[in-house]
Amino acid sequence: MTFLNFVISGLSLGSVYAIIALGYTMVYGIAKMLNFAHGDVIMVGAYICFYSVSRFHLPPIVGVILAMIVCTMLGIIVERLAYKPLRRAPSLAVLITAIGVSYFLQNSALLLWTSNPKMFPSVVTKGSLKLFSGQLSVSYVTIVTIVTCIVIMICLTWFTGRTRMGKAMRACSEDKGAAQLMGINVNATISLTFAIGSGLAAIAGVLLCSSYPTLMPTTGSMPGIKAFTAAVFGGIGSIPGALLGGLMLGVIEIFAKAYISTQLSDAVVFAVLIIVLLVKPAGLLGIEMQEKV
């Protein structure tokens, strides 16, 4: 039963990673940039939810929606001000700008909300579901996290596969020039991608802090890096890859903590990533592009 417990908590953590990784992977797919500020959008989302629930006593669901709205706006504004002017710049310049944005968000949070850790109130009612006559207990937060992740995945798969905008998004990530010739508004599509990614980051922030309730301005950076790893793990640019990578990373992390060592769990996670990339250089579900000479 303990084994099953570890699997479930791994899946729960992995779901959070997967939701964050979706943001990374979609932005990478379309803008070909590593958005290092993504982790800090998570933190902003968590803070917005925290303040609306504990300070203004709004119902949790309103807090989540508020966080999503603020993060979506934030994503669009950041893209417009910092990344859009660099559309034709070398990728390293964009990377450094993203790091600048990350510093900016972290330090704004430090000024606005101080460095004191906040105890995040869970947005889901406390308690747990008892299964197998009480041998296996699964907290409601875990269930909500996993279900949210599945719902988001289904919605995104439908969105990118069936809707006009989703198809535009895929077209842009394949060939921006050709997409523009077909009458797709490339700039608007990129903005939309950032908006969706940031909105998802808000959800991830709330779910993350519901399970691990310490909230600080640096809360987002480590999960951000892990989720980025998850995106690469699954094959960056691929949406199912982000889900698979996120879930696997979560399970591996929890297993490493349980069976190997708590302190070395990060090392184990990154070691697995390295091994996977050596066997499959484009990630688990990534498509290896043949270079044309």
């Binding site: 990478y28 890096i225 690469v232 990060d266 070691a271």
Partner: peptide
């Protein structure tokens, strides 16, 4: 060095984190 581009970057990141983690223990 078998990898390319962003994949190479992420693996160097991973090694950096592993080294930090090992020295911490």
């Amino acid at each position: 060095l078998r990898l390319k581009g962003d994949y190479l970057a992420i693996v160097t990141l991973a090694f950096g984190e592993i080294i930090k983690n090992i020295f911490n223990n």
